[in-house]
Design a protein around this nucleic acid. Structure first.
Lengths: 219, 219
DNA sequence: TCAAAAGTGTTCGTTATACACCCATGT
DNA sequence: ACATGGGTGTATAACGAACACTTTTGA
């Protein structure tokens, strides 16, 4: 089957930057391309938008197909359409980003990928297409959103914490997402002012040092 | 000539929200559609991206073709791609916005339009497609950008002022762009702090009341 | 007793907002 | 003289950034 038009049409894809924290470091989910172009290169997961689905729906579908994750709020970054960004044909992509917990994800390489892996954002391989640009934009947006206001993205940060967590653990998560160290006292003021934390009146134990108070995010 | 693909491709357009100030009120440039769908309806100018041009280049080209304006910085708003937004076929559009002086523009209806006209933003006709949504997003973005920081968008605001202007004239322009009244003293503090104004040591004359000091934006 | 992490307040600069009266001119 | 728009300063609140020492525990 083929599809014919009176004038040329670009292909349109959705690419999704999936961020997570693994072992205290910001990671991004990449797939290894099975087919040309950039065969064998690593790339942001994504794929072609279907004709009957919305952009964000298509992005969510690709995300679920390639990673098993669903239900995450996807934020649109914008459209990327340099004419030479794909050597095969004109491909315009709409980029999205999401912040997800990595432990609940089942990594399953899709038909277009030979592998799917988490990469440390500070140790990235060469990326296919213009995915380095997209990923850099997404990284900047993530840092912006996470600590400035109370957004869904910031809420997702708590998924990297156990139900009972110490303020030091929370600070480490937000520092990883923001990409820079935060002042301890200012962070504690910020989290107390912006989030509804419950003081569990418990302390950590078994640590080598002074026990820390445990908190939980109130539902 | 026709173009054939192995799987369906959407069409991709760029739509540009062109804002201007006319007679003290915020206007947007719309075209009247010559062809179906929405024949006779008003719409944001825009058109199909060519296969060999970048998105912003295509938007600028459409802008110049339909309005004669060029050299304006276009800001991408994002992609809009609801499957049913165009009844003909799947059309995904990338929206841009610009703020331009309307006096230098030559309105020339293009091949796709029977007319091109400025509309008061408070007196809009029904719009084709999802252009009401796009335009509302653009309006919000414009208000955000204009007074918060010193951006290219804010710089464009001075194009609505004569070279020698009074602070009251400047305030009227920014109020129009922001969509709400501004405090006179706070506005004067803001403009003095954020822009390099030259006090021309001249006064208006011929007015019916107290003359006002004239300023110019230093290059 | 020491090493290591937990915990805790204040100051300062910037920014946004609110608000009321006198001044200079033309008619 | 008066109507009209021009011009001016201060006080408050909120926010972000900087900064150092004491406390508690396990080893």
């Amino acid at each position: 089957m083929s599809y014919t038009y009176d004038y040329p049409h670009p292909a349109v894809t959705a690419d999704i930057c999936i961020f997570s924290i693994r072992e205290g470091r910001l990671h991004v989910l990449l797939i290894q391309r099975l087919i040309a172009p950039y065969q064998g290169s690593w790339a942001i997961p994504g794929g072609f938008i279907k004709m009957d689905e919305d952009l964000v729906t298509g992005a969510a579908r690709e995300l679920e197909e390639e990673t098993g994750v669903s239900g995450m709020p996807l934020e649109q970054l914008g459209a990327y359409g340099r004419p030479d960004r794909d050597p095969r044909e004109r491909v315009i992509t709409v980029a999205f980003m999401a912040l997800v917990p990595s432990d609940t994800m089942i990594l399953a390489a899709s038909t277009d990928a030979s592998d799917a892996r988490w990469f440390d954002m500070d140790d990235l391989p060469a990326l296919a297409f213009d995915h380095d640009t997209i990923l850099a934009d997404a990284r900047a947006r993530l840092a912006d959103k996470v600590t400035n206001r109370v957004t869904e993205t910031a809420l997702a940060a708590f998924q990297f914490l156990p139900q009972k967590f110490t303020l030091a653990q929370a600070q480490a998560v937000f520092e990883t997402l923001k990409g820079e160290p935060l002042d301890k006292r200012n962070f504690r003021k910020w989290i107390a002012a912006n989030w509804d934390l419950e003081d569990l009146k418990e302390k950590t134990s078994g640590g080598r040092h002074r026990p820390a108070a445990l908190y939980a995010l109130k539902a």
